[in-house]
Amino acid sequence: MPDIPKDELNDFKNSLKNDIEIDPIKSLIIISKNLLEKGGTRSAIINISAALEYTVERKIKSKFLLKGKAEKSIEKLLNSTKMNFKERCDRTLKKATGKSLVSEYSTEWKKIDDLRKRFRHSIAHSVLEPTYKDTENLISEFENVISIVESF
């Protein structure tokens, strides 16, 4: 297991023992760190990327549902930005939450955008093998942005 605080690890173990559904974002983060520890840098990056993308999607959905927007309408909106993560993190997130990751957290956005281009996209389209240190840094940066989006 990755090095996580003992209380979080105990909560995670208890959830598994008691068949309690684990938050998929937390699960993806833990899996990502575990894969990194095992040397699976490519898979670790894909998992933490999924955690970030799902965090943004989930936040948009939950905020629009609270505003009374129909689920079909939300899905249509999300489908329109499926291949444009920047747009989703900028205008769509702002419409849903009142905050834009791109403009209001530009330093963090630039870091993860660069990391996504350098690593996530390259992994999906090449034989790139990221280093342990690069992957560890990427996971840390993505976790930071996940926390930001979850706070919206």
Rank of each mutant, 00 (worst) to 15 (best):
P2N: 13
E129N: 11
I46S: 08
D11G: 12
K26F: 07
A44S: 13
K133N: 10
E104L: 01
N79D: 15
I4M: 04
S100P: 09
T97I: 06
K13V: 08
N18A: 14
E57Y: 14
P2A: 15
K59T: 14
S106W: 00
S27G: 07
T135D: 08
S43M: 11
D3N: 15
S151Y: 08
K111E: 11
T55E: 12
K133Q: 14
D11W: 03
G40M: 04
I45G: 13
K17T: 13
E57C: 00
D113A: 14
P5L: 05
S106R: 00
N47M: 06
N84D: 15
N18D: 12
L93K: 06
L66T: 12
E87W: 05
K13C: 03
I74T: 05
V127W: 10
L101R: 07
R42F: 10
E75W: 06
L66H: 06
N144W: 03
P24M: 11
S62L: 14
L28F: 01
D3F: 00
W109T: 05
K26W: 09
D23V: 01
S49N: 06
S147Q: 13
G68D: 03
F85T: 00
I22A: 05
E75L: 11
L93R: 02
E53S: 10
M1K: 01
P2E: 13
L101F: 09
G68V: 01
P5M: 02
D19I: 03
W109K: 06
K133S: 14
K13R: 06
D134F: 05
S43K: 11
R91A: 01
N34R: 08
D19M: 13
L65Y: 10
S32L: 00
Y105E: 09
T135L: 05
V127P: 00
I31W: 01
E71H: 13
L128F: 03
I74F: 12
L78R: 12
K61C: 02
E143S: 15
T107S: 10
V149S: 07
K33N: 14
A50V: 02
R88N: 12
S43V: 03
T97F: 13
R118C: 02
I46L: 10
K110I: 03
K61N: 11
A50T: 13
V56N: 14
K117Y: 07
E53Q: 08
L78T: 09
L66N: 14
L52C: 03
G39C: 09
D23F: 08
G39M: 02
G39L: 05
E143Y: 05
V127A: 14
F64C: 08
L101Q: 07
D7L: 04
K38W: 04
R118K: 13
A124I: 01
K61H: 11
S27N: 12
H125Y: 10
N79R: 07
H125P: 05
I29M: 10
A51V: 03
S106T: 05
D23E: 07
L35F: 14
S122G: 11
I148R: 07
L35H: 13
